[in-house]
Design a protein around this nucleic acid. Sequence first.
DNA 1: ACCTGAACACCGTTCAAGT
DNA 2: ACCTGAACACCGTTCAAGT
Lengths: 244, 244
Amino acid sequence: MTQNLEVDRRVRLNRDRVLQAAVFLADETGIDSLSMRRLAQELQVVPMALYKHVSKKEELLDGMVETIIAEIDPSAGGSDWKSEVRQRVLSARRALQRHPWARQVIESRTTRTPAVLAYWDSFTGMFLAGGLSVDLTHHVMHAMGGRMWGFTQELFDDPAAAAGQSAVPSAAQAVMLQQMTDLYPNIAAIAASSAHDGASVVGQGCDDQFEFEFALDLLLDGFERLHRQGWSSKPGKPSGGRQD
Amino acid sequence: MTQNLEVDRRVRLNRDRVLQAAVFLADETGIDSLSMRRLAQELQVVPMALYKHVSKKEELLDGMVETIIAEIDPSAGGSDWKSEVRQRVLSARRALQRHPWARQVIESRTTRTPAVLAYWDSFTGMFLAGGLSVDLTHHVMHAMGGRMWGFTQELFDDPAAAAGQSAVPSAAQAVMLQQMTDLYPNIAAIAASSAHDGASVVGQGCDDQFEFEFALDLLLDGFERLHRQGWSSKPGKPSGGRQD
DNA sequence: ACCTGAACACCGTTCAAGT
DNA sequence: ACCTGAACACCGTTCAAGT
């Protein structure tokens, strides 16, 4: 019965093939050039054919987020909540780094799809299983914000843009550097201490992975401290525990 | 000489009038309906007239960010670095809350305009003036990420979307709530403990301002602790200070 | 110096029609 | 059930022309 539906036009569209192609196209050409029309072309299909599988472009983007979530490793289990959370966050970060468009798309989404809710729920569960109170876990989840997905605003990325254009001759570059130092002395101080190559104003010397883990651990340590102290959001009700 | 250039067509365009109108239009109708054409129409001018004052739409958005930055209170001075930073961040947060589109636009910008650099520089300066090492300040700036602008991912906003549609009859709502509890028990646990009204799954009970300050203070306290300990990113070089 | 008009190469999405 | 074609109401931006 099911023998020669192999080539109906191509392999026949379905939601998964659409999403996979969309992820691939976004990886290759950037999220800005991902249009319904361009995607249809890639799938050798007329634009409107896509609308049988995703009802709007928004739903396409929601679907793409789902595929990202699927790439995040589930908790291995067997260790303390802190390292379990840490592992999960770093895995999420790796998934997002494989797809440069993902952070922006996740941030732009307002709908809570089941996949997103399931991810949050499982994330929440790591703290609760670790013994943190529901109250503390609630605020912890807020505090994790984007870090739960493995991203922060990498404000100091793209150092070339900060230093001026990328391929300026070094004489002009020296002038720019001097101007930067005059105009932005504090940024310049950081640049001077962290840059090994001297050419970049901020960055180049920045190890994003280090910065990410710095902030992550600061928060995790903070959570742990509050947990040990029996912190509660209701004043005057610290549920026991020493004040170390 | 300069007497009757009052009404050339309207008041005559300039960059400031364009930016102001753009901010107003985005405030009123949302960032998605801010198009060059729509903005031109608002200013009673043909679309191309705008291009004398901003070279591309990107530059328009950069300009809009500048106007937001101008709304952030400069440091009052006279207090310790921690409360000064805190005040500045909360002021930034207020500015962003006046313009709901601002967070998204700031996040989408990749160019470092002078206004943005100046803001970062002044922000950096608060830590350095407080005596934090250049090294620590560097990583602190990374860790502040979006919080320096006064925003976090408010993941739990828009509770209606999480609970299903907004105006569901309460019988159907109860079914939904049960489903939520089955599917996402950990989120449900948080919702149950924080919701006073019982109807919302997550949120409604969430005080965004509280959550924001919770995470902010956790970080600030962490920074302070590292500062007191003489923390350094280079291992084995804690520059003095007790380990409390 | 500043604004206009027409045009180009795109968008997302609808609707009615084909197989 | 799935795909197509034509059409609608938009985009950002260029270029040559007007005042």
